[in-house]
Amino acid sequence: MFNKIIEAGEEKGFVTGKITDINGNPLYGTLVVVKGTKIGALVGANGLYKIKANINDVLVFNHEFHKPVEIKIKKAGIINASF
């Protein structure tokens, strides 16, 4: 289940963030993809990711134990999520 999104920051053209489980542990192995493109990033052991994306793009978060989640980007910056 997707629980939380936090957006902030101003790094133009990029979205970064941390993906965690409901206990706050990094959810490594999550694949983050810009919907409709071949642009993607794999979340590392620390739960962090960075992906090149534009305003109004949709990020798709895929993890083998969770249903995919789609988030429309409202501004460049940080999107943290917990499943």
Rank of each mutant, 00 (worst) to 15 (best):
M1R: 12
M1D: 14
N3C: 14
N3P: 06
I6L: 13
I6E: 13
I6P: 04
I6F: 13
E7A: 09
A8D: 14
G9H: 10
K12T: 14
G13L: 11
G13H: 08
G13N: 11
F14Y: 15
V15Q: 04
V15I: 15
T16F: 09
G17K: 03
G17V: 08
K18E: 14
K18F: 09
I19C: 07
I19R: 04
D21L: 06
N23M: 11
N23D: 15
N23Y: 14
N23E: 14
N25V: 08
P26E: 07
G29H: 02
G29P: 02
G29T: 02
V32K: 03
V33I: 11
V34A: 07
K35P: 01
T37P: 07
I39N: 05
A41T: 07
L42P: 03
V43D: 00
G44N: 06
G44W: 00
A45R: 10
N46V: 06
G47N: 04
L48N: 13
Y49G: 00
K50W: 07
I51A: 09
I51E: 01
I51Y: 02
K52A: 13
A53K: 02
A53Q: 03
N54D: 15
N54Q: 13
N56D: 14
N56L: 11
N56P: 01
N56G: 07
N56I: 10
D57A: 08
V58G: 05
L59K: 01
V60R: 09
V60L: 09
N62I: 10
H63N: 10
H63R: 08
H63E: 06
E64N: 10
E64C: 07
E64W: 08
E64G: 05
P68L: 06
P68R: 07
V69H: 11
V69T: 11
E70C: 04
I71A: 02
I71Q: 06
I71T: 02
I71V: 15
I71P: 03
K75L: 05
I78T: 15
I78M: 12
I78A: 09
N80E: 14
A81D: 00
S82L: 08
S82N: 15
F83C: 05
F83E: 05
F83A: 02
